[in-house]
Design a protein around this nucleic acid. Structure first.
Length: 483
RNA sequence: CGGGGAGUGGCGCAGUCCGGUUAGCGCGCCGCGUUCGGGACGCGGAGGUCGGAGGUUCGAAUCCUCUCUCCCCGACCA
């Protein structure tokens, strides 16, 4: 029912109980549903439509850098997965195994891919003999399985969807360049399309990808508890995988070298980020550029004779908007307008267009923004011009709000007690100097549950005492709790 | 994997301690009518065997044993 607030009451309070709010909004907005299989979730059409829009934007950007799509198998023979020692060790606890085919026990078990380096690299080995065969630039859209405890829709599920790019290069410098290039692609995607500001940075050794030389990440700040979410990663694998999977080539001088690899991925987890960064007490708030529905038209009428006029006007308005915008008309006659308003707000549709008898009289529509709640009358004839601009404004405003949150909930901390206080109080990102030792990193983690999210690429260019041991360091890191 | 909580129509819950009529309630759903500018209302109706298995008993949602699942808090993670 509706309370004094004037909107859905059945949603947990976004400030008081953010985790519960998340679970509820995911379900009520029909983003995802529970599944009968432990740890997995069903992505419903509305949630999948968002993913598809993100996918399209990212796919275009990836291809624009010269990468092609391909597809490698879901299964990896045990011996292959085990070739790279650090890699296996890192993933061992979360690998699902196929031990039987039909009624027959397999001679060698197959791993269900937790990521595909171990199946892709051996193939690259076959394709590469000469420096002329490099670079190899391939991406695949796939599902992977990681046997996680504690599933949360989109954020952490046993099976999830993602893209994983895998490249091979003739030099470490070129691999590093590609690693950073893809990190930039992710940053641009998040900030431009999803209105999510991120902090690009390097992972500490303890947080990096199993088997990587270096892992870069973009970290975003979620709403509610201001925890961090690792939103995409890009790894420079050095020649570790080239060596163990024997990706060898002859250079111009006829000398033998191992190839240098990169891999980089962004998953359906990002959908969780969109939900948590932008959502509010009324529900979701979709960034216009990727919103499954950018505007919804709600007809309003009382009597049947009004209905015919209104629905005709609605159709005129809808067709005047063309096909470039994703516009939906809500013709349901078993729901009242008020019910629909709440429903579309819960689903986060950026713009609502109300059209009733009074509007027809005035040759106008009422236009309501989801981000600010602002309502204005717009002459019907002007709507096709106004709407795209309005969507751009909403996109910009949503980015700006998220940026403000990131700024306001980030603090440079020099006092260890303050760091603890901030972690305990869900106060966001703490920027601190760190000496680089794992002991100091672990101590903070053990005492505050905050981890090093990244070493931001943008450094202050000064030095200061390590937050734990006091050793002078010029490395600043972000400590925060993370999903 | 450790600690805590919970499984009862689609959803949210009551009933369980102290076994005993046809297992209730709100929302939702179906039909009809009145409604419709911020989650409308009336009347009529459908739908559960109480997570699962076993046991105790004349009788089990309720007691006992085993088991599965989900949620929250910790250890590990895109």
């Amino acid at each position: 029912m509706v309370s004094d607030r004037g909107y859905v009451e059945e949603l947990a309070d976004v400030e008081d109980d953010f985790d519960r709010w998340y679970v509820e909004v995911v379900r009520k907005a029909e983003m995802a549903d529970d599944s009968p299989v432990r740890g997995t979730r069903i992505i419903r059409p509305y949630g999948f439509a968002l993913w598809e829009n993100i996918q399209r934007q990212l796919d275009d950007r990836i291809k624009a850098t010269g990468v092609e799509n391909a597809y490698f198998p879901l299964f990896i023979p045990k011996s292959m997965l085990e070739r790279e020692a650090e890699h296996v060790e890192g993933f061992a606890p979360e690998v699902a195994w196929v031990t039987h085919g039909g009624n027959k026990k397999l001679e060698e078990p197959w791993a269900v891919r937790p990521t595909s380096e171990a199946i892709i690299c051996p193939i690259y080995s076959r394709w590469v003999q000469s420096y002329r065969d490099l670079p190899i630039l391939i991406n695949q859209w796939s599902n992977v399985v990681r046997w996680e405890e504690r599933p949360r829709a989109f954020l952490r599920t046993v099976e999830f969807l993602w893209q994983e790019g895998h490249t091979a290069h003739s030099s470490l410098d070129e691999a590093e360049e590609r690693t950073l290039q893809m990190l930039e692609v992710y940053r641009d995607l998040c900030e431009t399309e999803l209105a999510i500001p991120v902090v690009p940075g390097l992972k500490s050794d303890s947080e990096k990808f199993a088997g990587a030389l270096r892992t870069y990440t973009i970290e975003a700040m979620m709403g509610g508890k201001h925890w961090a979410l690792q939103s995409a990663t890009s790894h420079n694998l050095g020649d570790h995988f080239g060596r163990v999977f024997d990706i060898e080539f002859l250079d111009k001088q006829g000398e033998r070298h191992f190839a240098f690899n990169t891999s980089w991925g962004l998953s359906t987890r990002i959908v969780g980020a969109v939900i948590m960064v932008h959502g509010d007490e009324r529900g979701l708030k979709m960034p216009p550029r990727v919103a499954p529905t950018q505007a919804v038209i709600v007809p309003i009428w009382r009597k049947d004779n009004e209905r015919a006029d209104v629905e005709a006007a609605v159709e005129r308005v809808r067709s005047s908007l063309g096909t470039d915008l994703r516009v939906k008309v809500d013709l349901r006659d078993d729901k009242t307008p008020g019910w629909k308003f709440n429903d579309w707000e819960l689903k986060g549709v950026p713009v609502r267009i109300e059209l009733g008898p009074r509007d027809i009289q005035n040759e106008q529509v009422m236009v309501v923004r989801r981000d600010t709640g602002e309502k204005q009358a717009v002459p019907m004839a002007e709507l096709p011009g106004v709407l795209p601009t309005l969507l751009d404004e909403i996109q910009a405003n949503m980015y700006e709000s998220a940026r403000k949150m990131l700024e306001e909930k980030s603090e440079r901390v020099t006092d260890y007690a303050r760091l603890k206080e901030r972690a305990a109080g869900n106060e966001g990102f703490s920027y601190v100097y760190w000496c680089g030792s794992e002991e100091c990193e672990d101590k903070v983690k053990a005492e505050t549950h905050a981890t090093i999210r990244c070493i931001p690429l943008e450094q202050p260019g000064e030095s200061g005492p390590c937050i734990v041991c006091g050793t002078t360091s010029d490395t600043e890191v972000i400590f925060a709790r993370a999903y």
